[in-house]
Structure formats: structure tokens, C-alpha cells
């Protein structure tokens, strides 16, 4: 974990990007309102709401900045930008707390 940037930073802007942790391999089990995610790396199981699941799934493909994630959410979820910004920020914080994502400069 020494190669990662400070995982406690809350700075999702300023050009930094969110990424899933290296080596993370996720099994998904989507439900109606929630998704179960099994992290093969840690052995942890998480229950995520749909927005968290969408953010994590998106970051599984490529690292993105918070602004880029927000744009995707506003387009896909028809949320107003203020509400979406708060929701995305909170979900990213939670996903980081679960050791599923981190901030990177790359």
C-alpha cells in the first residue's frame, strides 16, 4: 500500500482521480435497490446502494476524477447538480472507507 497516495485525503478535485485498489477483483450480485459485492482480495462482502454500485463499477473500468464521475451521474440519474455532487462525494467517501477505492495522481 506504500505506493498509494494518501487514502485519507478528501480531495477528489484538483485533477486527482479515483481508482479501485490495485489487485481488486470484485464479484457482483445486483438486486433491485442494492448490490452485493464480494471483494476477492480482502474477502469482504459489501452491500451497496445503486449509486455506490454504479460509481464502483465505473471506476473498475478506469480511474476518473470526481468531476467526471459527477457528470456521468447527472447524465444517467437525472439529478440536479447540487444534490448529485453531495451524493457522489458521500458515496466516494464511503467506498474509500471500505477500502475499495483510493485517490491517485495518475
Amino acid at each position: 500500500m506504500s505506493t498509494l497516495n494518501d487514502p485519507l485525503s478528501t480531495d477528489g478535485g484538483l485533477g486527482r482521480r479515483w481508482s479501485i485498489l490495485p489487485g481488486t477483483d470484485l464479484l457482483w450480485h445486483p438486486g433491485d435497490d442494492t448490490s452485493l459485492v464480494y471483494d476477492l482480495l480482502s474477502g469482504d462482502t459489501h452491500l451497496l446502494d445503486n449509486l455506490s454500485a454504479m460509481l464502483l463499477d465505473t471506476l473498475s473500468s478506469q480511474p476518473l476524477s470526481e468531476a467526471e464521475l459527477l457528470a456521468a451521474v447527472v447524465d444517467d440519474w437525472s439529478l440536479d447538480s447540487q444534490g448529485a455532487a453531495e451524493a457522489v462525494s458521500q458515496r466516494l467517501h464511503n467506498l474509500r472507507q471500505l477500502d475499495l477505492i483510493y485517490l491517485t495522481d495518475s
Partner: peptide
């Protein structure tokens, strides 16, 4: 009861879920 919550509870109250990995989840 929500199936996702149910699965999470069962995972937390299984004796060997963590031993079984992918097979346990599936």
C-alpha cells in the same frame, strides 16, 4: 425483508463464509 440485507446478515453469521471465498459468496 430485503434480500441484500438478508444475504449480508447470513454472511456475517456463517461459521465458514470467510474460508470459502468465491464459493461461499456464490
Amino acid at each position: 425483508r430485503d434480500p441484500g440485507q438478508t444475504a449480508l446478515y447470513l454472511a456475517q453469521n456463517a461459521f465458514n463464509y470467510s474460508v470459502l471465498g468465491r464459493a461461499g459468496f456464490e
